[in-house]
Amino acid sequence: MSSIGTYFYNIFHSLYTVVVGMRITIKHLFTRSATVQYPTVKMKIPERARNRLFVNIDDCIGCDQCAMACPVDCITIETIKSTPDMDLGMTSKNTKKRLYLPRFDIDIAKCCYCGLCVWPCPTECIVMTDVYEFAEYDRKDLIYSFSNMTEEEIAAAKVRLEQYNQEQAAKKAAAVPAKEPAPPAANPLPPSVPDIGKA
């Protein structure tokens, strides 16, 4: 096209495209808007949506697998071994509980809702709920504590464990002269990962 032709073509083309655009926008002016008025109207969230975590502490056996799975380390679990004379009851899946849980904290502010902690749990007691409105004014309030033990109970459990350990040590000391140095596996309660979860 000659340059003068291009000039006129450009003018008419731009005018035409403006009209096309304006027709589209005016159409949208009169279509229903897609906005959901959130706090008053709530959208239905999908069934398997991942939101706030919940721990059914009565079922937790303190195996620490959820904490290990968590990519951001937002679960903190402390456990105290129970002595054989104490019965902590059974979980709903008929697993015997052997550990006290003086501390089970989830820092939900750090949680990325990946759900990785949910799958390994042997008793299925750490689950995702559909609650998503839990903003707080203080970040500390976002550390959820699920443990239901009081201070006294914790202290008592510690004392009992201490006594039991001493008794065992005394027994072992009495048994040593009869045997050669005991293999480490013979230690009745290994200090780290207990293998109770497999029961």
């Binding site: 005016i26 949208h28 002016l29 009169f30 279509t31 229903r32 808007s33 906005t35 008025q37």
Partner: peptide, 13 residues
Amino acid sequence: KVAAHIQDRVAYM
């Protein structure tokens, strides 16, 4: 309001 409705929103309510 016009801007919002053109973009299928509702603007302040």
